[in-house]
């Protein structure tokens, strides 16, 4: 029973500053959001390139992209993240050396972003590819008839037209990356999950701290769901609802 008596009160434990872990959890959550946002952006970039590459080529490139999306989506994220974290840093260092920047060290945060982005890219490729394919062909042909170049067509027609189709899938991917970001705690990057573990390890208040961290994760996901719902309603403005086929 002595544990009850000796333990610091809850509000001290979660307070801001030198006594409590409120600020550590807050900064952990910021890191979680940071690696999620940049990893997501990187994943979207990769996904866009991947989707366009898959749709516009049939040769070696398409095969390679197929291999990437199949493999990365079939492997457990935890294993992929650990493999990429150690092997990927080697590769990045090699790449930096190759382009002549030389002795650069990749920080834990960059490694986390790149790893999450690479995993995310495989899923984004598939979501974006499906969304692009759902754009009515007539729209693109019309643009072609107007004499638009390939690039202009993609930028002005395909991209805006496919976005509403892609949004539900992209929302899902965002929710996944905020949760998957907890896995980089396994390789020692201090985001929310690891910050919580460290705080719990020192204070021994495992239960309270894990509940608090989960509340933060839940707040992130619920806010995101609301945000994506709003974005989808906006993007679908002016779109016709389902039309009854006569």
């Amino acid at each position: 029973m002595h544990l009850f008596a000796a333990a610091v009160p809850l509000w001290t434990l979660l307070s801001w500053g030198d006594q409590g872990y409120g600020d550590e959890l807050f900064w952990g959550a910021c890191h979680t959001l940071e690696i999620s946002i940049f990893g997501y952006a990187l994943g979207l970039g990769l996904g866009l390139l991947g989707a366009v590459g898959k749709l516009s080529s049939a040769g070696l490139l398409a095969k390679g992209l197929n291999g990437y999306t199949t493999l990365f989506r079939a492997l457990p994220e935890a294993i992929l993240i650990m493999l990429l974290y150690y092997a990927g840093t080697d590769a990045l260092n090699g790449l930096f050396a190759l382009v002549g920047i030389g002795a650069l060290q990749v920080s834990g945060m960059v490694a986390a972003i790149v790893v999450l982005g690479a995993v995310q890219g495989a899923y984004s490729t598939e979501v974006l590819r499906a969304a692009i394919m759902a754009v009515p062909k007539g729209q693109i042909e019309a643009a072609e008839a107007l004499g638009m170049t390939r690039f202009l067509r993609f930028r002005r027609i395909t991209l805006p037209a496919m976005l509403p189709n892609a949004l539900p899938g992209l929302a899902n991917l965002w929710l996944n990356i905020t949760k998957d970001s907890a896995l980089v705690s396994l390789v020692g990057f201090t985001e929310l999950a690891l910050a919580t573990q460290q705080a719990a390890g020192v204070s021994k208040r495992y239960f309270v701290l894990y509940v608090t961290a989960q509340a933060i994760y839940l707040a992130i996901s619920q806010t995101s769901i609301a945000g994506f719902g709003w974005a989808e309603r906006r993007l679908r403005r002016g779109q016709r609802g389902p039309v009854a086929v006569p």
């Binding site: 705690s185 989960q214 839940l218």
Partner: peptide
């Protein structure tokens, strides 16, 4: 919402 909105790793730790 709780299960789908928080990482499984944290659920297991808890």
């Amino acid at each position: 919402s709780y299960i789908r909105g928080t990482p499984l790793l944290m659920q297991l730790y808890l």
